[in-house]
Each structure stands twice: as C-alpha cells, then as structure tokens.
C-alpha cells in the first residue's frame, strides 16, 4: 500500500454532461461568436469543472493589479525571514493537467508532494534539523486510534475480499481444466476402442485373403494390437459392490436407488410373481402328479351325490 488508492471524486463527475448542455443553453450566441473573435477562450470553456464556468470572462470583472500587489507587499513576510519559517516549496508543474482525468490529476498532486518532500528534506538536512519523527516518539495524532482501527479493518476486509475472489477464480479455472482433461481422456479411450476393432477387422480380412491357410497353425499369426492385453485391460480402479460384468456400475442392483419404489416393487413381485414364464409354473409335472398329499381317501363328504 505504497500509493493510496485514489478515491473517485464522486462529487464532480455526475453533473458533467448536464453542465455541458447548460453551457450551450446559457450562451448560444456567445459560443457562436467565439471562434472568430477569441479563439483562445474555447479551451477555457471546454475545461469543465464540477461547477459551471462562464464561457467567456465577464467584461466587468474587477482586476486591480496595483491594489493586489500593494496588499501583497503589506502582508508578506519581511525579506529577512528565513525559509524555515515558511516551509514552502515551489514545484514546477511540467505540463497542464487535465482536470477531468482523475488519475492523472491525483498523480500530478502526488508527484508535487513527493518532490516537495525531497526538496524540504534536503534543506532541513543542510540545516541539521530533524525531519521525520523518531519511531519512539509518541504524541497525539490527527486521527484517533479508533478511527485508524476502522481504516485498518477496512483495508483488511478489502484484502480478504480480493483473496476470496482470487480463490473463486482459481477453482473455476481448475474446474474448466478438469473438464478438458476429462474430455481428452474420453477421446483417447474412444480412439483406443476404435483401433482395437479396426485391428480385428484387418486381421479377419487378412485371414480371408489368405484363404484361412494358416488356420491350422493354431492362430500363430494373430497378432492383434490387443493381444498384449493392453486394450482390454481393466482399469485398475476398484469398483466396490459392482459385479464383474456389470456395465451399469452397480446401479442395477441398487434398483435406481429409490428406496420406496423398491419396496413396493418387491411386494408386488411377491404377490404377483416375477421372472420366468408363467406357463411353466402352471404345467403339471411328474412331481406334482405323484404328490398325494392333498388327496384324502376317507373323506366322502365331498361328493356325496356323485358317489351315491
């Protein structure tokens, strides 16, 4: 925090546009007559500040140079007053500063202050006078400690906010990168698969062309690219709870993971049966035929009429 942040000069900017229009409203005839009569004034009127300016200096404005110089002579310090009493430094302003360019303007002020400090320091140094306060010199400051606490809190909060934003940005970027990597991987896998299929096709064609001649060799020529076991190698990842042939990744067994509907399904399965052909269940088998458990001999009460 070397250079303090230049606070936007809030007060001035917002009215700028209105002001320009007003100037036009104010003195249409003045601005018309201006260019030929007093061209140097145009620059004056263009320099808009937060407050309006007359486009043209009013004619009856008083400027009593003699009086001013008189007064200046009256109030100014006598010549024998040393610099140490005034402590003022004049700084050359290299070029005209644009008022409406906040940054340039503040920079100009800052440079002026810095230059002034240097000059004053040199002079004081030459006189052998102390300049900055020693670090162990404590005295009342312009701003109170509680105020400075607030300032510090604000600075810290700002820093934190910036850090957080950075963090967010980083994660976002990482996510993007991860996505890209994922896509790359998928592409590679697809490519590998395609290659495998291609090689099989090639081999088949070759075999066909050669009229299955070397078939009796016991497939010695079968040198697929996947033969080295690479292509179909399982990824080393363990998949807990997934059957070896399961392509759904264990989702089938979990039944979609919906607990309630799962229960319902089970109930219905038990009630109405599930799986296999119904017809087979209903056919009588040898076992069923030989089963006499249900056949009660002594019970004649059933079909009395028929028996008799």
């Amino acid at each position: 925090m070397g250079l303090p942040k230049k606070g936007p000069t809030l007060l001035k900017k917002k009215k700028m546009e209105d002001d320009e229009e007003e100037i036009a409203d104010l003195s249409p005839e003045v601005s018309d007559s201006e260019p030929e009569s007093e061209p140097e004034l145009e620059s004056e009127s263009e320099l808009e500040d937060e407050d309006l300016k007359l486009a043209e200096p009013s004619k009856n404005a008083i400027y009593n140079t003699d009086g001013i110089i008189d007064k200046l002579g009256d109030i100014s310090f006598p010549d024998n007053v040393g610099w140490i009493h005034r402590l003022s430094v004049d700084i050359d302003q290299e070029q005209e500063v644009d008022v409406n360019d906040d940054l340039a303007r503040e920079l100009a002020f800052y440079n002026q202050a810095l230059e002034g400090t240097r000059k004053a320091f040199e002079k004081l140094q030459a006189m052998g006078l102390p300049f900055l306060r020693p670090s162990d010199y404590y005295a009342e400051m312009v701003k109170t400690d509680s105020h400075m606490e607030k300032v510090k809190g604000r600075l810290l909060a700002e820093k934190r906010r910036i850090e957080e934003a950075e963090e967010r940005k980083k994660t976002r970027e990482a996510k993007k990168l991860a996505k890209e990597v994922q896509a790359q991987k998928a592409k590679e896998r697809a490519k590998q698969k395609k290659e495998g299929i291609e090689s099989v096709k090639k081999w088949r064609k070759q075999r066909q062309q050669s009229g299955f001649a070397k078939d009796d060799d016991g497939g010695k020529e079968m040198d697929f690219s996947f033969e080295d076991g690479k292509a179909f190698e399982r990824s080393g990842k363990k998949r807990p709870g997934v059957m070896p042939g399961d392509r759904s990744g264990g989702k089938m067994r979990q039944g979609g993971g919906k607990g309630k509907s799962q229960k319902k399904r089970e109930f219905r399965n038990s009630k109405f049966g599930f799986g296999g052909r119904k017809g087979l269940k209903k056919q009588s088998t040898a076992e069923a035929t030989n089963d006499f458990r249900d056949f009660k001999k002594g019970n004649v009460s059933g079909n009395k009429k028929r028996k008799r």
């Binding site: 402590l87 003022s88 430094v89 004049d90 700084i91 312009v142």
Partner: peptide, 10 residues
C-alpha cells in the same frame, strides 16, 4: 502527528 509543521508545496 497533530501539530507537526506541514511542508507547503505550491
């Protein structure tokens, strides 16, 4: 510091 003499730059 409150009351330290300012350097005036013009």
């Amino acid at each position: 510091l409150q009351g330290s003499r300012p350097i005036l730059t013009f």
